[in-house]
Computed example of a mutant assay.
Amino acid sequence: MNDLVANFRKMPGPLKVLTLFSLMSALLIAATVVPGGAVVGQRRVGLEDWWTNGSGLVFTVAVCLFFSAGILLLKARRLGRLTYILSVVGLYIAGYFIELINGVSYSRDDYFFDLLFVALQVAALSAYFFLNRRVKDFLVS
Protein backbone atom coordinates (compact mmCIF):
# COMPACT_ATOMS: atom_id res chain seq x y z
CA MET A 1 0.00 0.00 0.00
CA ASN A 2 2.86 2.36 0.77
CA ASP A 3 4.23 1.73 -2.72
CA LEU A 4 0.96 2.84 -4.27
CA VAL A 5 0.92 6.06 -2.26
CA ALA A 6 4.58 6.72 -3.08
CA ASN A 7 3.92 6.09 -6.77
CA PHE A 8 0.93 8.41 -6.71
CA ARG A 9 3.08 11.18 -5.24
CA LYS A 10 5.71 10.65 -7.97
CA MET A 11 3.16 10.86 -10.80
CA PRO A 12 2.98 13.93 -13.02
CA GLY A 13 -0.08 16.09 -12.26
CA PRO A 14 -2.23 15.21 -15.29
CA LEU A 15 -1.50 11.50 -14.78
CA LYS A 16 -2.69 11.82 -11.19
CA VAL A 17 -5.98 13.27 -12.42
CA LEU A 18 -6.45 10.52 -15.00
CA THR A 19 -5.66 7.88 -12.38
CA LEU A 20 -8.15 9.39 -9.95
CA PHE A 21 -10.81 9.39 -12.69
CA SER A 22 -10.34 5.68 -13.20
CA LEU A 23 -10.26 4.85 -9.49
CA MET A 24 -13.36 6.92 -8.77
CA SER A 25 -15.23 5.11 -11.53
CA ALA A 26 -16.10 2.39 -9.00
CA LEU A 27 -18.55 4.90 -7.56
CA LEU A 28 -20.46 4.78 -10.85
CA ILE A 29 -21.49 1.19 -10.12
CA ALA A 30 -22.59 2.20 -6.64
CA ALA A 31 -24.58 5.04 -8.18
CA THR A 32 -26.69 2.52 -10.09
CA VAL A 33 -27.38 0.46 -6.97
CA VAL A 34 -28.00 3.04 -4.22
CA PRO A 35 -30.76 5.10 -5.89
CA GLY A 36 -32.26 1.91 -7.30
CA GLY A 37 -31.32 1.99 -10.96
CA ALA A 38 -30.01 4.22 -13.68
CA VAL A 39 -31.21 6.71 -16.25
CA VAL A 40 -30.52 5.79 -19.85
CA GLY A 41 -31.36 8.58 -22.25
CA GLN A 42 -34.59 10.00 -20.83
CA ARG A 43 -35.75 6.62 -19.51
CA ARG A 44 -35.35 5.50 -15.93
CA VAL A 45 -34.30 1.86 -15.65
CA GLY A 46 -35.11 0.30 -12.29
CA LEU A 47 -32.55 -1.65 -10.29
CA GLU A 48 -34.04 -5.04 -11.14
CA ASP A 49 -34.33 -4.28 -14.86
CA TRP A 50 -30.83 -2.78 -14.92
CA TRP A 51 -29.33 -6.08 -13.82
CA THR A 52 -31.71 -8.55 -15.49
CA ASN A 53 -31.57 -7.03 -18.98
CA GLY A 54 -27.76 -7.09 -18.99
CA SER A 55 -27.12 -3.36 -18.78
CA GLY A 56 -25.62 -3.66 -15.32
CA LEU A 57 -23.26 -6.42 -16.39
CA VAL A 58 -22.06 -4.53 -19.47
CA PHE A 59 -21.55 -1.40 -17.40
CA THR A 60 -19.76 -3.27 -14.61
CA VAL A 61 -17.32 -4.95 -16.99
CA ALA A 62 -16.47 -1.61 -18.62
CA VAL A 63 -16.03 0.15 -15.28
CA CYS A 64 -13.92 -2.69 -13.86
CA LEU A 65 -11.57 -2.46 -16.85
CA PHE A 66 -11.32 1.30 -16.33
CA PHE A 67 -10.68 0.80 -12.59
CA SER A 68 -7.98 -1.80 -13.27
CA ALA A 69 -6.23 0.69 -15.56
CA GLY A 70 -5.94 3.05 -12.61
CA ILE A 71 -4.49 0.30 -10.44
CA LEU A 72 -1.94 -0.55 -13.14
CA LEU A 73 -0.95 3.12 -13.38
CA LEU A 74 -0.60 3.29 -9.60
CA LYS A 75 1.70 0.29 -9.76
CA ALA A 76 3.70 2.15 -12.47
CA ARG A 77 3.10 -0.61 -15.03
CA ARG A 78 3.58 0.26 -18.68
CA LEU A 79 0.55 -1.88 -19.53
CA GLY A 80 -1.56 0.67 -17.65
CA ARG A 81 -1.32 3.12 -20.55
CA LEU A 82 -2.79 0.72 -23.08
CA THR A 83 -5.35 -0.57 -20.59
CA TYR A 84 -6.48 2.99 -19.88
CA ILE A 85 -6.93 3.80 -23.56
CA LEU A 86 -8.76 0.55 -24.27
CA SER A 87 -10.98 1.04 -21.23
CA VAL A 88 -12.00 4.53 -22.41
CA VAL A 89 -13.01 3.00 -25.73
CA GLY A 90 -14.73 0.20 -23.81
CA LEU A 91 -16.80 2.69 -21.83
CA TYR A 92 -18.08 4.27 -25.05
CA ILE A 93 -18.85 0.86 -26.53
CA ALA A 94 -20.62 -0.14 -23.32
CA GLY A 95 -22.71 3.03 -23.52
CA TYR A 96 -23.72 2.14 -27.06
CA PHE A 97 -24.73 -1.40 -26.04
CA ILE A 98 -26.65 -0.10 -23.03
CA GLU A 99 -28.57 2.18 -25.40
CA LEU A 100 -29.39 -0.80 -27.60
CA ILE A 101 -30.41 -3.00 -24.69
CA ASN A 102 -32.79 -0.39 -23.32
CA GLY A 103 -34.11 0.83 -26.68
CA VAL A 104 -33.09 4.46 -26.23
CA SER A 105 -30.59 6.73 -27.90
CA TYR A 106 -28.60 9.64 -26.53
CA SER A 107 -27.91 11.07 -29.95
CA ARG A 108 -29.81 11.80 -33.12
CA ASP A 109 -28.78 8.48 -34.67
CA ASP A 110 -25.90 10.35 -36.28
CA TYR A 111 -22.92 8.82 -34.52
CA PHE A 112 -20.29 10.57 -36.66
CA PHE A 113 -19.63 13.28 -34.09
CA ASP A 114 -19.63 10.75 -31.26
CA LEU A 115 -17.02 8.68 -33.10
CA LEU A 116 -15.01 11.79 -33.91
CA PHE A 117 -15.01 12.79 -30.22
CA VAL A 118 -13.88 9.31 -29.16
CA ALA A 119 -11.14 9.27 -31.80
CA LEU A 120 -9.86 12.68 -30.70
CA GLN A 121 -9.97 11.67 -27.05
CA VAL A 122 -8.07 8.45 -27.76
CA ALA A 123 -5.51 10.36 -29.84
CA ALA A 124 -4.98 12.90 -27.05
CA LEU A 125 -4.65 10.20 -24.39
CA SER A 126 -2.27 8.21 -26.59
CA ALA A 127 -0.11 11.25 -27.25
CA TYR A 128 0.05 12.03 -23.54
CA PHE A 129 0.73 8.47 -22.40
CA PHE A 130 3.26 7.53 -25.08
CA LEU A 131 4.96 10.83 -25.98
CA ASN A 132 5.16 12.71 -22.69
CA ARG A 133 8.65 12.38 -21.19
CA ARG A 134 7.51 12.62 -17.57
CA VAL A 135 4.99 9.80 -18.03
CA LYS A 136 7.63 7.65 -19.72
CA ASP A 137 10.10 8.31 -16.92
CA PHE A 138 7.51 7.53 -14.26
CA LEU A 139 6.52 4.23 -15.87
CA VAL A 140 10.15 3.14 -16.31
CA SER A 141 11.08 3.55 -12.66
Rank of each mutant, 00 (worst) to 15 (best):
M1I: 13
F8G: 00
F8K: 02
M11P: 01
P14K: 06
V17S: 04
L18W: 01
T19R: 00
S25N: 08
A26H: 13
L28C: 13
L28W: 11
I29L: 15
A30E: 01
V34T: 10
V34Y: 08
P35N: 02
G41D: 01
Q42I: 11
R44L: 03
E48R: 02
D49A: 09
D49I: 00
D49M: 05
W50D: 11
W50R: 00
N53P: 07
S55A: 15
S55F: 02
S55E: 07
F59N: 10
A62G: 14
V63P: 09
V63Y: 06
C64W: 04
L65M: 15
F66K: 05
G70E: 07
L72I: 07
L73R: 00
L73A: 00
L74Y: 01
A76K: 14
G80H: 03
T83I: 11
Y84D: 05
V88C: 06
G90A: 06
G90F: 04
L91G: 12
Y92W: 11
Y92E: 09
I93C: 09
G95C: 14
F97Q: 05
I98T: 10
I98L: 06
I101M: 01
G103Q: 06
V104E: 10
S105H: 10
S107G: 15
D109N: 02
F112T: 06
F113N: 13
F113A: 03
L116R: 05
V118P: 04
L120I: 12
A123N: 06
A124W: 12
S126H: 04
A127K: 14
Y128H: 05
F130G: 12
N132M: 03
R133D: 07
L139P: 02
V140F: 13
